[in-house]
Amino acid sequence: MNYWLIKSEPNTYSWDDLVRLGRDHWDGVRNFKARNHIKQMKVGDLCLFYHSVNEKAVVGIAEVVKEYYQDPTTDDHRWYVMDVVPVKKLKRPITLAEVKADDRLSEMQLVKYSRLSVQAVKKEEFDIILELSER
């Protein structure tokens, strides 16, 4: 199993939107590195769901339930989506400031490449985020 972080502006698409829909494709990715991450995702992989822009916080966990396929929002065959379902909302959101303040997360892609919309996450980083959310 691999771990990921997927980012969305909550006023465009939020955790609550995914929960309401129950299952959805992750579209609109127009960065080649993020696209390549989508192509690596496998059914069962877990994703930290991150609200970007104003909130800047990890708010939930989603699971990949369908591997990459053509993005239905564009005719450009270079772009892909994957399907995710909500697994659980975090007990409390973990802000970017908290992530940056924790030395154990200093190498996390969220800290180093904060603009990338789909990022790889190490299992240890994933576990630390969950641990922080329980405090």
Rank of each mutant, 00 (worst) to 15 (best):
S14G: 13
W15P: 03
L18I: 12
L18W: 05
V19H: 04
L21K: 14
G22T: 00
G22A: 00
D24L: 01
H25P: 07
H25M: 15
W26G: 00
G28R: 10
G28N: 08
N31I: 12
N31W: 09
F32P: 01
K33P: 14
R35I: 03
R35C: 04
H37E: 07
H37P: 12
I38G: 13
I38P: 08
K39G: 05
Q40D: 11
Q40I: 02
M41N: 10
V43R: 14
G44Q: 08
C47E: 10
C47N: 11
L48Y: 12
L48W: 13
Y50M: 09
S52R: 08
V53C: 11
N54A: 06
N54S: 11
N54Q: 12
A57Y: 00
A57W: 01
A57S: 05
V59W: 01
G60Y: 02
G60P: 02
A62T: 01
A62N: 02
E63L: 05
V65P: 09
Y68R: 05
Y68G: 05
Q70D: 14
D71F: 10
D71Q: 10
P72L: 03
P72I: 02
T74C: 06
D76G: 10
R78W: 08
W79T: 02
M82A: 15
P86W: 08
P86A: 07
K89N: 04
K91C: 10
R92H: 15
P93T: 03
P93E: 04
P93W: 07
I94Q: 06
L96D: 00
E98W: 13
V99Y: 02
D102H: 12
D103P: 08
R104M: 11
R104Q: 15
R104K: 09
L105P: 08
E107A: 06
Q109F: 14
Q109H: 12
R115V: 05
L116R: 11
V118K: 09
V118H: 06
